[in-house]
Structures are given as structure tokens and as C-alpha cells.
Computed example of a mutant assay.
Amino acid sequence: MKNTVKNGVILLLIVVHSTFARAEVIKEKEPNVIATAETIINAPIKDVWSILAEDWAGIGKWSSGVSHSQGFGQPIGGSDYTIRACEITAAGFDDTKEQILEYDDQNYLLKYELADGLPGFVKDAINIWTLEETANGTLIKGKTTMRATGIMGVMMKGIMKGATRKALESMTRELKHYVETGELHPDKLASNKKVAKKEAKMRKKVAFVDVQQEIDAPAERVWEIIGTNFANIADSNPDCPYSEWADGYHKAEVGAKRIMYMTDSRDKKYFVDEIAKYDPANYHITIEITNKKGFGTLNINYTWVNMDVEKISENKTLLKIRFHYLTKPKFLKGLAKGSMRKGFQKYAYGIDYHAETGELVTEKKWKAIKHLYK
């Protein structure tokens, strides 16, 4: 009898403990930072929705909190992208990546999460925007929920709530102005001027390396490799095992993007390149890096490549490459210069070999052909 009672007590304690444990988990997952903002926009609901949701990746056009934004991933609903990257203007804040969780163009609801750029003590952050038709136009409501944890979370909850509410109010105010007038809010204009001034200052600090290579092949053939076949850079770059067009792009033109995977494991190190200038008549291409993974010191906001093909004779071509770059921190740019030049010279050799032989230049094959370029 004693054992039966004892076992029953133990079982009861286990059940109670388990119940409290589950309650703690549920409580821990609930947001503890909530901020809201709303306003009336004197415009049809579809006009507001087209800017807020359909052009979701274009937030950098009108929000003073974002200097530049870029879309990625698959389309969802009326939006061309499910992911956007934002360069944040506020000092001390990291650039962010956000991903759409719910896109409802029937009920005018947009829900997305901050997938990257959160402080370590913030476990998740979700934004929800809803639109409602009113007699005066459109009621827009914004809500942000976050889960701040640890000691820093306890200390920063109040500050974060105030800052988030202020950011939401700024967004609704600037969106209202943009939709109603078709012009940028004064705060966005001021932010653009500040960003442009910083941009000019930063560009003066950009370093560059020059590489040239004479190639025994027609200029048209060399241009085909670097321009027409933009997405096939893996054919001539021994450091790039695989490359492809980014989603939605199929030919070389301004705005087209490719993905350069720099290891066999495609999710570890890669670049996303975009054609900024494309001039086939003069054999010129400018390529900007819009996204990366695994190259932490490279500041992609100030990194681009100019490539030019000059005809020397019918079967001889001069390839010119100028790589502009900046590092984080900036003092590393001098230390990186040697390796940058070496890497682009290797790439130029790869273009040479591919143009002259038509063979693919893989890392394995490079070991056998590099002696040709000593």
C-alpha cells in the first residue's frame, strides 16, 4: 500500500512538473516586445497595397530607414520576391534580411519575419501589416512583435519597444506621403542626401587591382565568355565549381543576376552578381556584388568589377579587369590587395585557356595547366 501511494505521489509530481515546464516553454515563445502604429491614407486600398506589398522589395525607394533594398527568392502573390535585403540607415544597426510568411491580397494582410540582422538576444521579430477600406481612404495598421531573451533582453525591452514604435510611425507617415503625393517624404529626401554624402566619402576609400591578359582568340570569343555567357563563369574560373542564373533571369542584360558558388557545397560560400552596365558594342561590362555568404570581410556595398575587351588583331585580344573593393574593417583592404590581384589574375588565365581551347577550367584541371602561365 505504501509503495502504491509513493508511486502515485511521484507520478503526480512528474505530471505537475511537466505541465509547468510546458507552460514555461509556451510563455518563453510568446513575444514580450510589441509595438504598433496606424494612420489613414487618402488613397484607394489597391494603391496602398501595390506599394506596400506588391513592390515589397522596393521599400528603399520611400522609407528613410532603408537606403537600399533588394529582392531575392521566389515570387509570392503579387510580389516578385519572398526575401528582401535592406541596408539600414540608422547608425549601429545591422543590415537586415526579411522573408514573407503570409501574403493575402484578398484580405490585405502582409506578414514577414526578420531572418537576419537581429541582435543576439532577440530570438525572432515579425511584422504584420493590414489594410482596411474606410470612408476617407485606407486605414493602415502596422504591428511588430519580438521575443527578447536573457539579461540584455530584460534590460533592452523598453528601449526596443520605443524605437520600434518610432520606426513604424515613421514608415506609415512616409508611406502616406508617398502614396498621396507621389513624392518622397522630407525625411526620406534628407536621408538620401546624408547617404549620398557618406557614399561619396566611402568611395574615395575604395581600393582597386588591375589585371590584364593577352589572349590568342578573337575579341568576339572573349566577349562571349565574359558577357554573353555571363552566368557560365564556372566554365573559365577555376575557383568557381558551379554557377547559374539567379531565379528569374535568363540572358545577359542590365539587371541580370548570376550566382557563383565558390565551393562544391553550394550553401557555404557564394556570390550573387548583377550586371550594372552592359555594352556589347564596345565590349564592356560592369558587375556589382549584391549578396554574398562566407566572405565576411568584403564590403559588397563598395565592390564592383569593370571588364573590357580590346581587339588587337583578328585573333589577338587584350582583356582588362579592374576590381574595386572595400573591406570591413577598412584597414584590411591593403592586406587583401595581394590575394585579390592573385585571384583575378588566375581568373584571367582561366579565360585565356577557355577561349583558346574551348575546354572547361576546373580546379582539378587548373593544377595541370597552371604551369602554362608562369
Rank of each mutant, 00 (worst) to 15 (best):
I40T: 02
K365S: 05
Y242W: 14
V5Y: 08
A281G: 03
R173D: 15
L360I: 08
L189Q: 13
G358L: 01
V5I: 14
R173L: 14
A21I: 07
D239P: 01
N237M: 06
E180C: 07
K6W: 13
T130S: 07
I226Q: 06
L101Y: 11
G65N: 05
M146V: 08
K205S: 12
V16G: 01
E54G: 02
T134A: 06
A37M: 12
L168Y: 00
I151N: 14
A135Y: 13
A219S: 05
V309D: 01
W56S: 00
F230M: 04
F331D: 14
W56K: 00
N306D: 10
D352H: 12
Q74E: 15
T286R: 15
I128E: 11
H177N: 11
I215Y: 09
Q106W: 11
S170A: 12
K141G: 08
E54M: 03
L298I: 06
S69F: 07
I287Y: 06
T145C: 01
D95T: 08
L12F: 12
Q74W: 12
K61G: 13
E174T: 02
L109Q: 13
Q99L: 11
Y261M: 11
A43K: 01
E253M: 12
W129I: 04
N229A: 10
A125C: 00
L326N: 11
T134H: 04
A256M: 02
G162R: 09
A355S: 12
N32M: 08
S191Q: 08
M160H: 10
T89K: 00
H371N: 02
Q106L: 13
G58Q: 03
G182N: 11
N136V: 05
T172F: 09
M307E: 14
A190P: 08
L168N: 10
S18F: 13
A85S: 11
G120L: 10
F121D: 08
A115G: 09
I151Q: 11
I287G: 05
I226S: 07
G227Q: 07
L52C: 10
R322G: 02
F121Y: 10
W62K: 04
N192T: 00
R22L: 15
V16W: 00
I215R: 03
E169V: 03
G248K: 00
E180I: 01
M202L: 02
S18D: 13
K194Y: 13
R341G: 04
L109V: 12
D187P: 08
T286K: 14
L114C: 13
Y249V: 04
I275Y: 04
T327K: 06
D80K: 07
I215H: 05
G92C: 11
G60Y: 02
M146I: 08
T39C: 01
I151W: 07
V5L: 12
A219C: 05
H324V: 03
G343S: 02
E132R: 12
K364E: 03
M160F: 08
L332P: 09
A163I: 09
W129Y: 04
E38Y: 08
V272N: 04
K188G: 03
Q74M: 15
K123H: 14
Q70C: 14
I51Y: 10
G58K: 10
L184V: 04
E220R: 03
M146G: 02
C240V: 03
K46M: 15
E244H: 05
H371P: 01
L110T: 08
M202V: 02
M155V: 01
M152E: 14
F230D: 02
R165I: 07
R266Y: 10
Y270H: 01
I41N: 05
C240N: 00
K166I: 14
E174Y: 12
A53V: 00
I312L: 07
D352Q: 12
